[in-house]
Write a protein that binds this DNA or RNA. Structure first.
Length: 189
DNA sequence: AGCACGATGCTCT
DNA sequence: GAGCATCGTGCTT
């Protein structure tokens, strides 16, 4: 029944993973209830040379998880109040990840709506708030059922329903990194 | 529908 | 001490 995507899925080029995560199902077991949403927006962050990536600072306490094996969660805290969820990609030792930026709720919709007080789940900090994801999940293995957080295969999104564009919020990042079209959006029916 | 702004605290220099 | 991979509100058009 529950079948997390295997580690091989994540051990690939980050842009490939970011593209293929569109349409996949992000699952969270919260208080024994299953909550889930279809991933509709992602962004790729690729290595120390990508000046938009946190790993540009090298290996630090914060970025440590990105240097580890693929298929783990990289959850970071920002703006003094928000958590953002990434999945670690590429080979063990290479720091890269995909930021999950938006979901469409499909399971546990009422719980999600209550947690969001009726507001939407389109935004990286909105979906973590909706699903109860925070720093406790940093480093969690998404290829296992034990952490209460994983991703399952979903309906593939055809190319014609995908658009790309620059990553969001990189105001002070220099070119060409600021404008790389490493953001992926799924336009579902 | 769009823009400006304040909240709020961790991380790295 | 500066900057931040954001969000919600409130005000303007």
């Amino acid at each position: 029944m529950a079948a997390p995507l295997p580690r091989d899925f994540y051990a690939r080029p980050t842009l490939t993973v970011a593209r293929e995560l569109l349409g996949a199902r992000l699952v969270r077991i919260l208080d024994g209830l299953r909550l889930a949403g279809i991933i509709t927006e992602t962004e790729a962050y690729i290595g120390e040379t990508d000046l938009g990536c946190h790993a540009r600072a090298g290996r630090t306490r914060r970025t440590e998880v990105m240097y580890g094996p693929p298929g783990r969660a990289y959850v970071y805290f920002t703006y003094g109040m928000h958590w953002c969820l990434n999945v670690v990609t590429e080979a063990d030792g290479f720091p890269a990840a995909v930021l999950i930026r938006a979901i469409r709720p499909v399971e546990g919709i009422e719980v999600i709506a209550a947690r969001r007080q009726g507001r939407d789940t389109q935004g990286p900090a909105k979906l973590t708030q909706a699903l109860g994801i925070d720093g406790a999940h940093n480093g969690a293995d998404l290829c296992s059922l034990t952490g209460g957080l994983w991703i399952e295969a979903g309906e593939p999104v055809p190319d014609q329903a995908v658009t790309t564009g620059p990553r969001v919020g990189l105001y002070t990042v220099p070119e060409p990194w600021k404008s790389q079209p490493w953001r992926f959006l799924a336009h579902l029916a």
